[in-house]
Design a binder for these strands. Structure first.
Length: 469
RNA sequence: GCUCCCUUCGUCUAGUGGUCUAGGACGCUGGCCUCUCACGCCGGUAACAGGGGUUCGAGUCCCCUAGGGAGUACCA
């Protein structure tokens, strides 16, 4: 049997991390077993579905590299097929027309709640004849007794009593099919073998199995993955910051970091934290996924992101960094090679946005020195070291880290001070802040011209300070 | 309300009856390294929701309680 899994989002918003993880698990399962991964867009809710959402979901999947083998299939293109199946159920007496008014239904629900019972449709129209020409919905005739057992890959055996279920609507008054019918038909037609989806669907599963049975089909294997909560343990929502996958890209995250974070949320392989895509495919197993919901922890994602930034090829980092430099109004071709910058900053940034921020000095003069840094390092005592450095650098032709390092060292030896006494003021002078890569590399990236100009700025700053004192 | 699901450090998790005075990771924190920041290295902090059973022995099996979550739509 060839494994076939699917991801079936409804296009009512962007791709969020919960959906992305479900898609990842589904994708991994298919990849692991040499199967196919199908993408299906569940857009039968014509009111809420939008094309922008479809595009946002597709974009998110592409960014994460979760490529699908078939699809995207759109449910709105398959209404004819759904009606065919509904017709089949009608013919076999497994579905019936119902013209109960909303008022009657609301009343029914209210009374059941009052009696402390689960609200269920009472089957009022089950044995009545409803004229096909008058407005009506079609309901599925759910078995009245017996149990439905779901052997869930993650939850284990879960049993439901048919008494708890009611005759659900499978076609609306406007003729459109409803979710529980379309999933069943699609999973059946697309020959989905493993349905891996969010556990908010666990309660729907027995209904779907019943429809499948009525159609004389075997049900697929289910795996209901728990949901993801926000940092605070509450349900993930917009107030938790980035929940949209694409927003993580904008915030400077690497797709492999998000993927690695997501795969470890609810799943583990011993003590291993870092997984390449190939390792995930090899080691992941859906039945080892935790049953409990887990909280999204941005701190750990940040750590993983830094790990991947550190480990990646500087050329790729530079490539990904480029647009973030652009966001700061910097054209990276007008200055040092961005690859060298990336190489110098790889160990210093948790995100590409942060890397762009701490690298801007390589391309642009800053407006002002960081207040704290200037106060501490651009003081009168720094004037002499800076003047000496300026002299030492002005005549330097060989602007390489080695030569630069030597000059800084020479100046500190001449002045008989520790290297920090020279390097720190110099750093603040040319970077504007107190932190940067090694002073030699920093000098190299800034370049001779800007270095001398900025040292002069710093000296002027110190002079003014002396004048004020 | 009713049905279903869940419960190990703050967070992600290991743990499938004895090797658990509960391991790893993030975070936080002490130190080392050091021209700054970061990286790296060494150390510390912190958990089996509560209560009953079963068993020679329970984080691990069963029951109850509590607390979370989902569903209960002519949404998906």
């Amino acid at each position: 049997m060839t494994v076939r899994t699917r991801f079936a989002p409804s296009p009512t918003g962007y791709l969020h991390v919960g959906g992305a993880r479900t898609a990842l698990f589904s994708w991994l399962y298919a990849r692991k077993h040499g199967g196919k991964f199908v993408l299906r867009i569940e857009d039968t809710d014509l009111e809420r579905s939008t094309e922008e959402s479809v595009n946002a979901i597709l974009e998110g999947m592409t960014w994460l590299g979760l490529e699908y083998d078939e699809g995207p299939f759109y449910q709105t293109h398959r209404f004819e097929r759904y009606n065919e199946v509904i017709g089949e159920l009608m013919e076999k007496g497994l579905a019936y027309r119902c013209n109960c008014s909303r008022e009657r239904l609301d009343d029914l629900r209210e009374r059941a709640m009052k009696r402390k019972e689960k609200p269920r449709y009472d089957g009022h129209c089950k044995s009545l004849h409803v004229d096909p020409d008058e407005p009506h919905v079609i309901r599925f005739r759910n078995p009245e007794s017996g149990t439905v057992v779901v052997d869930d890959l993650i939850r284990g055996r879960v049993a439901f009593n048919n008494e708890e279920l009611d005759d659900l609507i499978i076609r609306r008054t406007d003729g459109s099919p409803t979710y529980n019918l379309t999933v069943v038909v699609d999973d059946m037609d697309m020959e989905i073998t493993h349905v891996i989806r969010g556990d908010d669907h666990l309660n729907n599963t027995p209904r779907q199995i019943n429809i499948l049975r009525a159609l004389g089909k075997k049900s697929p294997i289910y795996g209901h993955v728990p949901m993801i909560l926000g940092d605070d343990g509450a349900r993930l929502s917009k107030r938790h910051g980035a929940v949209s996958v694409m927003q993580y890209r904008e915030e400077g995250f690497l797709p492999e970091a998000l993927l690695n974070y997501l795969v470890r949320l609810g799943w583990s392989h011993g003590d291993q934290e870092i997984f390449s895509i190939d390792e995930m495919i090899e080691l992941f197993d859906i039945d080892q996924v935790n049953k409990a919901a887990s909280s999204f922890n941005t701190e750990k994602l940040l750590w993983l992101n830094q790990h991947y930034i550190k480990a990646d090829d500087p050329k790729r980092i530079a490539h990904l960094l480029s647009p973030h430099m652009g966001n700061l109004g910097i054209d990276p071709t007008e200055g040092p090679d961005l690859v060298d910058v990336a190489k110098a900053q790889q160990e210093r940034a948790k995100t590409l946005v942060e890397m762009a921020d701490i690298s801007a000095f390589c391309y642009l003069d800053f407006e002002a020195f960081d207040e704290k840094a200037a106060k501490k390092h651009l003081r009168p005592a720094a004037r002499e070291p800076l003047e000496k450095m300026r002299e030492a650098l002005e005549g330097l032709q060989d602007w390489t880290p080695e030569a630069l390092h030597e000059r800084v060292q020479q100046v500190s030896e001449t002045l008989e001070v520790k290297m920090g006494k020279v390097a720190q003021p110099l750093r603040v002078a040319i970077v504007g802040r107190a932190a940067s890569p090694g002073i030699d590399v920093t000098l190299q990236l800034v370049g001779k011209e800007a270095t001398l100009r900025r040292i002069d700025m710093a000296l002027e700053f110190i002079r003014q300070r002396e004048a004020q004192a």
